[in-house]
């Protein structure tokens, strides 16, 4: 299994990034991981970093997940997004379907299995 992916983590909770990073490392999911607690900073370094996949939290101050997705659309940036949220609301899940680049909607906490499932899902594309 080759590490091909570069993943960008965007979550205002430092600890959430810490956990997800560990899970990605232990499952051998990505080649490199960059993490951001400020969505604005993540957006501005997007062009430079060119990640293959973004793990995006929804509930964040100032720029929330939806605004982040709108900003991507505005930039015409097609980077694939996995929403990683603590919200169990069906409304959010429905809303996510309006964004084509959202390839999965995961509810925290993630575990090794959810990451491995995602890995399998992405393998043909890699």
């Amino acid at each position: 299994m080759t590490k091909l992916l570069k993943i960008m983590l965007v979550d205002d909770q430092k600890m959430a990034n810490f956990i997800n990073k560990k899970l990605i490392e232990v499952t051998d999911f990505a080649e490199s991981i960059i993490d951001y607690t400020l969505p604005g900073a993540a957006l501005s370094e997007l062009e430079k970093e060119k990640p293959d996949l973004i793990f995006l939290d929804l509930n964040m101050p100032e720029i929330n997940g939806w605004s982040f997705l709108d900003a991507l659309k505005e930039k015409d940036n097609q980077t694939r997004v996995v929403i990683v949220t603590s919200s169990t609301s069906d409304l959010d899940k429905e809303k996510a379907q309006n964004y084509n680049q959202v390839i999965d909607f995961l509810i925290k906490p993630l575990n090794k299995n959810t990451i491995l499932d995602l890995k399998n899902k992405l393998r043909p594309a890699c």
Binding site: Q13, M15, A16, I19, N20, L23, L58, N59, S86, S87, T88, K108, P109, L110, N111, K112
Partner: peptide
């Protein structure tokens, strides 16, 4: 959002 967020962290750490 608010209630589950810290809980998911606790569960994540246990994970």
């Amino acid at each position: 959002h608010n209630l589950r967020e810290p809980l998911t962290r606790i569960l994540g750490f246990l994970e």
